[in-house]
C-alpha cells in the first residue's frame, strides 16, 4: 500500500485558504509561545498563552508542535480586535479559568503541571459559552490546517493529481482472501 509520509509538506500554493485560519503555520513556525505575540494584539499575551495551553488540552496530539496550536488560536486575536464581545468572552473566560485553577492548585491554569488536572478544570466549564466558543472554533481552526493533514495520513485535494485511480484507491493488501 502507498503510505502517506507524515513529513510531506504542502507547497505554498495550497497553504490555508480557509477563512477560519488566517495565519499560516509557516508564519509562526519555529516561534515559541512566549514570543508569538510579542508585538501585541487585542488580547493580553498571558490570555493567548493560556488559550494555547487550553487548545492543546482540548485536542491533545503529542506529535503536533505548539506552532499548530498557536496558528489555531491566533485568529481570536483578530476577532477580538474586531468584536468587543469576543474580546470580553475570551478575557473573562480565561480569568475565570485561572481563578478556578488558583482555587484548586494555587496557581494559574497554564502553570498547573498535569494535563489530567487541567482537564478537570475544563470539564468544570464545559457548558459555558466560553468553552463552547473555544472548542467549536478550534475543531475547525486546528484540523483545517493543511500542513498537519499528512501527519494524520490525510492527503487533501486529489483532483489536480488525477484522483487516486493510479495512486492507490484500491491498494489495500492485508484483507483476508475472498
Amino acid at each position: 500500500m502507498r503510505e502517506v509520509d507524515p513529513r510531506s509538506r504542502y507547497s505554498r500554493r495550497f497553504v490555508l485558504k480557509a477563512a477560519a485560519v488566517s495565519v499560516p503555520v509557516a508564519a509562526v513556525a519555529g516561534t515559541a509561545i512566549s514570543e508569538a505575540w510579542a508585538e501585541g494584539g487585542a488580547l493580553q499575551p498571558a490570555t493567548l498563552k493560556t488559550l494555547v495551553k487550553a487548545a492543546r488540552d482540548i485536542y491533545p496530539h503529542d506529535f503536533l508542535a505548539d506552532t499548530y496550536y498557536i496558528a489555531a488560536v491566533t485568529p481570536w486575536n483578530e476577532k477580538a480586535a474586531a468584536d468587543p464581545a469576543v474580546k470580553a468572552l475570551l478575557e473573562d473566560g480565561v480569568k475565570r479559568l485561572d481563578a478556578a485553577a488558583q482555587a484548586a492548585h494555587g496557581k494559574p491554569y497554564a502553570q498547573v503541571a498535569w494535563e489530567a488536572d487541567r482537564v478537570v478544570l475544563l470539564r468544570g466549564i464545559e457548558d459555558t459559552p466560553f468553552f463552547r466558543k473555544l472548542r467549536g472554533d478550534l475543531v475547525v481552526a486546528l484540523y483545517n490546517q493543511k500542513e498537519l493533514w499528512p501527519k494524520f495520513g490525510y492527503e487533501g485535494a486529489s483532483a489536480e493529481k488525477g484522483g487516486y485511480i493510479h495512486r492507490g484507491f484500491d491498494d489495500i493488501d492485508w484483507l483476508p482472501k475472498a
Binding site: P60, V140, F152
Partner: peptide, 26 residues
C-alpha cells in the same frame, strides 16, 4: 476528510479519547 471527521465523528467531544480516534484516521 480529516476536517469533517473532526467536526462530525462525535460533535462536541474533546480530550484524549477523541484525539486518539482522530489519530486512527488513516
Amino acid at each position: 476528510g480529516l476536517p469533517f471527521m473532526a467536526a462530525f465523528l462525535n460533535p462536541g467531544a474533546w480530550g484524549r479519547p477523541f484525539t486518539a480516534a482522530m489519530e486512527n484516521y488513516p
